[in-house]
Design a binder for these strands. Sequence first.
DNA 1: AAATACGCCAACCGCTGCCAC
DNA 2: TGTGGCAGCGGTTGGCGTATT
Length: 295
Amino acid sequence: MGRSPCCEKEHTNKGAWTKEEDERLINYIKLHGEGCWRSLPKAAGLLRCGKSCRLRWINYLRPDLKRGNFTEQEDDLIINLHTLLGNKWSLIAAKLPGRTDNEIKNYWNTHIKRKLYSRGVDPQTHRPLKDSTASTTTVPPPNTSVLQSQITTSNKNTIINDISNGSFQLVGGYDNTKINVTKLVSEDSNSNSSSAVSSEETYHHQQLNLDLSIGLPSSTSHTRINTDKLKIEQLQGDEQQETKVVTTSHGLCLCYNLGFQSNQVCCCNKTIGNSITTTVADNNNMYRFYRPMDI
DNA sequence: AAATACGCCAACCGCTGCCAC
DNA sequence: TGTGGCAGCGGTTGGCGTATT
């Protein structure tokens, strides 16, 4: 049983990379491109395992890497994305061009955690520290729109992704009591009208319930549906909600369930900029925003 | 100046999920 | 359908540089 090792460990170097090794790796990838990491070391004349080469390239040698300190904007974006995604460093890194998952992970552990603690916020739950301990035993009352993932990390409103890039939008207020959310509402949610208007509303909630699913489109042009399903489990009493993977014909989609108090059942399609957003409110009074993402 | 403590970050390890056979 | 190979991910570690005593 067990899997054979990815490389012959006794014949591979470990530890810090030398300049010569870096150059060999860079030159090889320049000529042959990325991929086939298992066979790359031998082909490139490196006494390294493929995983090591991949890590070195992705985290350090890639030409498009951004160097230098993180900006305040990047800080806020990381915090917001962590609120939504948790320790999904690769997903977070995907929204920060030039930054790697490893870099963000390290930065989170060395800087942002401390920053959040100094603000009295639990970096794992994004709840106030004194509430975090109590929250483990507190169950929200049923049939309320208690929002489960509390955003409590910044004093600034932040737009997590701009509309023009075809992904999603969240305008978040971090004053613990006020969250501004740009919401799409149906002009007549009870009719079959396809027309819809968007309006911006300010909601006053202490907690925000966000669950997110990501999936590739079920386009017929795709023979392989590589569905990356991310499920943020929500326990509301004993009830567990699961977000469906939603696909559109425009690529990777994000779906947010935002728990707003409303009895309206909305199902509309709306174009914002170059992208199409679908907003659906289900029977649990949860609005779902589907926004295609570039991939 | 030397010893120690601390912080940062590159790199490693082990696991998971996907794909091909 | 089951199994093995592979790439990718997240957690952890170890070494180096800097600050403090």
